[in-house]
């Protein structure tokens, strides 16, 4: 697929912008974290589009964000499961 550019994104409505970014991010995240890829992609889509574009171009920044998202997700799930 052709690379996603800032101008392509700018031409799309806001919700479609996240869709486009998610479509590109998801396969990269699956490669890193197959079990949680859908959740992690959902989390990362909260981030600014410009930063998401940067992550698509920079495997290191994507990896560090994915690691961060996993930590947040695990903390969130641990909180959900533990009794008061």
């Amino acid at each position: 697929p052709e690379p996603l550019t800032a101008s392509m994104l700018a031409a799309a409505p806001p919700m479609d912008q996240k869709q486009l970014l998610g479509d590109r991010l998801y396969p990269l995240i699956v490669a890193q974290q197959p079990n949680l890829a859908g959740k992690i992609t959902g989390m990362l889509l909260e981030i600014d589009n410009s930063e998401l574009l940067h992550m698509l171009e920079s495997p290191e920044s994507l990896k560090s964000k994915v690691d961060e998202a996993i930590a947040v997700l695990q903390a969130h799930q641990a909180k959900d499961c533990s009794p008061k």
Binding site: Y26, K39, G42
Partner: peptide, 26 residues
Amino acid sequence: SHANTVTWPPEFRPGEPWKGYPNIDP
């Protein structure tokens, strides 16, 4: 029907439209 519990985070599924976060008010 709508679930009354908030599931966080919403899961991105390739090939399905991304609905985003229900509590985001643009």
